[in-house]
């Protein structure tokens, strides 16, 4: 699965990326984590608050730093 973190590289985005990779490990899933910093691409997901979390091209959360447990439930 592909997990994308949408955000211009602020602190929250970094934390969310770390939590996402921990969640993937905990859920026993093979996941590729991609940080999307290009605004054109972020805009294409229609996200208005960063950081955004995209799992397999579907936006699952925006503007929140989810914990690893929260993300694991979404995977």
């Amino acid at each position: 699965m592909i997990i994308k973190i949408l955000g211009s590289g602020c602190r929250k985005c970094v934390t969310l990326a770390e939590n996402a990779s921990a969640a993937a490990v905990a859920a026993g899933k093979q996941a590729q984590i991609i940080k999307v910093t290009d605004f054109a691409e972020i805009a294409a997901y229609g996200v208005m608050s960063t950081p955004g979390l995209v799992v397999d091209d579907k936006v699952v959360s925006a503007g929140k730093v989810l914990t690893a447990e929260d993300i694991a439930k979404l995977l």
Binding site: G7, S8, G9, C10, K12, C13, F39, I42, A43, G46, V47, M48, S49, T50, G63
Partner: peptide, 9 residues
Amino acid sequence: CSSIPLFIG
């Protein structure tokens, strides 16, 4: 850091 997505939205 959210101002640009907001502007786009």
